[in-house]
């Protein structure tokens, strides 16, 4: 099985260091209020994690699909933006 990290390693990115384009509005909603944590399962790039009772989000490998925003429809807890112009994933084939 090829891990998601290995898949992402093949991609080209221009990472906007320290300026994540997606933010969690209120982490306690994720940690305590959310049952599905659908973002963790559905994110195709494995950007979301839930470990030791805490939600985690690292957007470096983000494929800019929008899934995490759409699946968080119950709580609307994802502040989703595109990366700044020119940054983010650069598809070679697309």
């Amino acid at each position: 099985m090829m891990k998601v990290e290995e898949k992402l390693f093949q991609n080209r990115y221009r990472v906007d260091a320290d300026r994540p384009h997606i933010r969690i509005k209120n982490e306690s909603v994720c940690n305590d209020g959310c049952v599905s944590r659908a973002c963790v399962v559905c994110c195709p790039a494995g950007c979301w994690s839930f470990e030791e009772g805490k939600i985690g989000l690292i957007t470096d490998g983000c494929l800019e699909c929008g899934t995490c925003r759409v699946v968080c429809d119950t709580h609307g807890n994802v502040d989703w933006n595109y990366p700044r112009a020119g940054f983010g994933v650069l598809f070679k084939f697309g």
């Binding site: 898949k7 093949q10 494929l63 699909c65 929008g66 070679k92 084939f93």
Partner: peptide, 9 residues
């Protein structure tokens, strides 16, 4: 050889 992994809605 996988050279790219993409996702899209």
């Amino acid at each position: 050889e996988t050279r790219e992994y993409a996702a899209h809605l």
